[in-house]
Design a protein around this nucleic acid. Structure first.
Lengths: 164, 164
DNA sequence: CGTGAGTTGACAGGCCCCTGTCAACTCGCC
DNA sequence: GGCGAGTTGACAGGGGCCTGTCAACTCACG
């Protein structure tokens, strides 16, 4: 069997998504390196900035596995950007809370992100960006339906936080 | 500072790229699991299908670090999908060559990919897919320029192979 | 022919994400 | 009050990607 026209365009899109994903993560890491963050830690920090959260709650918000967030949270704690604090509602499940240092790092990161986003997007038209968003959302939705449906911890979807 | 209109749309696009990237890798892994492949191994297999290649040459083709490809190649060799063969042009740098089992796995993978791509793309219009490709290519190009330029092993760009 | 620059394989160490498993904990339902 | 279902933290192990470093190797240039 061969690709039809849309199948072919879709396959080209895949390649671009993979490439762009890699470049975006690299750019994000670069952006926040000065304050000792990475893209992953930044996202977690962005979630707990809205208030203390349990690890597993954060994972659900980000669409990741509990364990992934746990590792990231521990790294953030080692760096003093968050602290684990007692949870009145659950003895074992401590809450991840942002510290002053964490808030400062996050503020820096978000300021950098805004400038970088504006700069990078300047060469594209608003229409093309919005069009791409809509197309990608459509595909994500389709993959969510046809694909996943696993009964694991982290389902699909969820509203990823700050966005590097 | 705040996002301007395009900066905002771009930031939304980021989120979609991350999400879609994750879903695509998951879908690709799912697709080729029956023959013991993963997305990464599949891509390497796709490169060596065109003839034996050195690890470092493959890495350059795929835009990855040498070490990453080395690990993948060793996993493929353990599974008997490739073999390392002597290189007449370099005593240390053995060539990665696909085996019959590898060819069979690759054929299966590519057949699955075609069907899956056609099926997944069916709900989108050709225009929107092509538009998204163009937009993403533009952004990748921009990030390649402004961002990278590191002097490491794997530069940016390169023409990724089969495409899960 | 010999030497130095560049390429390559290999090892060490890190980051990020995942699954599987088990024990501790909470909470609703009987 | 107690039991079971669901949630959670924690440990183990794995895949995939990266940088840094060193030694072996090739090749062109002098």
């Amino acid at each position: 069997m061969e690709h039809d026209a849309r199948g072919r365009a879709f396959s080209e899109l895949l390649v671009e998504v993979f490439r762009l994903n890699g470049l975006l993560i690299a750019a994000g890491d670069e952006l926040v390196r000065p304050v000792g963050l990475t893209s992953a830690r930044w996202q977690v920090l962005g979630v707990v900035d809205h208030g203390p959260r349990g690890v597993s709650e954060i994972a659900r918000t980000m669409g990741l596995a509990r364990q992934s967030v746990r590792e990231t949270a521990e790294a953030l704690a080692r760096d003093g950007l968050v602290v684990f604090q007692a949870n009145p509602r659950h003895r074992r499940a401590k809450l991840v809370a942002i510290t002053e240092a964490g808030r400062a790092a996050l503020a820096y990161a978000e300021e950098q992100q805004v400038q970088w986003a504006n700069r990078t997007a300047a060469a594209s038209t608003l229409r093309s960006l919005q069009g791409a968003v809509a197309t990608l959302r459509g595909l994500s939705g389709r993959l969510d339906d046809l694909g996943g449906e696993a009964d694991g911890d982290a389902a699909g979807s969820a509203a990823r936080a700050p966005a590097p």
